[in-house]
Design a protein around this nucleic acid. Structure first.
Lengths: 206, 206
DNA sequence: GAGTATAAAAAACATTTGTTCTCCTTGCAA
DNA sequence: TTGCAAGGAGAACAAATGTTTTTTATACTC
């Protein structure tokens, strides 16, 4: 008793749906995908797949299929925040579905997120255009840290900078001699909002 | 608006359930887990979690929650077949839930499965007791291959052996001088059923 | 104490959805 | 042809389950 063409289609769709939506499809959703009208005939194929061991259903329960070969994994995906509006909270989950399949605890914090780096302003720190900067959220940082910051009224997006603090000023220094540092003194220092500290870099397509 | 203790419990359970069962829990299943009686109050917490972005529900649909931080991944887990009855087909999925979170294509075949090695009969091939032997299903093998075999009427479980073939006999040789080879001549050769060839070894707790 | 917000119990409701049954079509073999 | 099996259409049913509402209890604030 080998697998039918129809059964392959069903299994494939269940896998795809499961991956895309995060939960299994209902019988009627499978029907619509296969061009069937009613689940009456579909359920026979489902039964075959169950006998064959490809899926495992909980009888009577709704939308409860376990597809063998698929497992929900708590990778705790790292969210990629392409741009962060100044006022928005960091942790607001963008539904970009562009998350990195990496456990953020790997970088030391379950709240870590990623920023896609634009430009070459950090090139001397070996951070290239297009790299993903992994940021651990924290509101303060130490002298010399590379931080993700938002500068009020200057740019709506977060940028990476090297932090230089002394008694009278806060300096945001690029890691590229071509660019000028930004210096904030006095009241201006409050225009800087530190989102977090750089704790990792990922270069996906080298 | 930070996360409540109750909400943490709910989120945790949803994650656990997802991982264990392969699909999301229903509201009443969550209730039972938390000691609640009716889902009336639970749904408010669910709504909060949705606003907060931790989960994403499809309104009205049954058992349809996408938990952020969990993704169903087609790792095509490698099934661990602790023991294989002689007559049973290899690919019958044991619902042991002891699958290895490793893509079997990593070992060259999507049908690869794993056997837990018992004893030290393959110790000279550096395969220890408790190791997981990754087997690629195939019915024939070449001289010198390490294969998983079932010997008719002798043992119901599969074992690893080194295969030696010549014109008149098939020899199953352990990789340990303490044990004697098994030699099959003439008709006896049909008593051997080759399940597949060893393509990998995993030692989980070294 | 009065008022208020939160959490839960309890019950009822509406929809989704698995399941079953009957009938029809098609293909295949005797 | 006749018979049979598989696949699907269509309808109907029953259970699971999300949702809403009302009531009660507890804790907190003024």
């Amino acid at each position: 008793m080998s697998i039918t063409e129809r059964q392959k289609q069903i299994l494939n769709f269940m896998r795809l749906f499961q991956e895309r939506e995060g939960f299994p499809p209902s019988l009627r959703e499978i029907c619509k995908a296969l061009g069937l009208v009613s689940p009456g005939s579909l359920i026979k194929h489902i039964r075959s797949l169950e006998l064959q061991g490809s899926i495992k259903g909980m009888p009577g329960k709704k939308r409860a299929w376990k597809v063998v070969g698929i497992k929900p994994v708590t990778t705790h995906f790292i969210p990629v925040l392409g741009h962060i509006a100044a006022g928005r909270p960091i942790l607001a989950q963008e539904n970009k579905d562009e998350d990195l399949p990496i456990n953020p605890t790997f970088f030391g914090s379950p709240e870590a997120f990623a920023l896609r780096v634009k430009g070459d302003s950090m090139i001397d720190a070996h951070i290239q255009n297009g790299d993903l900067a992994i940021i651990r959220p924290q509101e303060d940082a130490e002298n010399g840290d590379i931080v993700a910051v938002i500068v009020e009224d200057i740019e709506p997006e977060a940028t990476l900078k090297i932090l230089r603090i002394n008694n009278e000023s806060i300096e945001l220094r690029p890691a590229n001699e071509v660019y000028e540092p930004l210096v904030f003194r006095g009241k201006d220092r409050s225009k800087i909002k530190i989102l977090g500290k750089l704790v990792g870099v990922i270069r996906a397509n080298p």
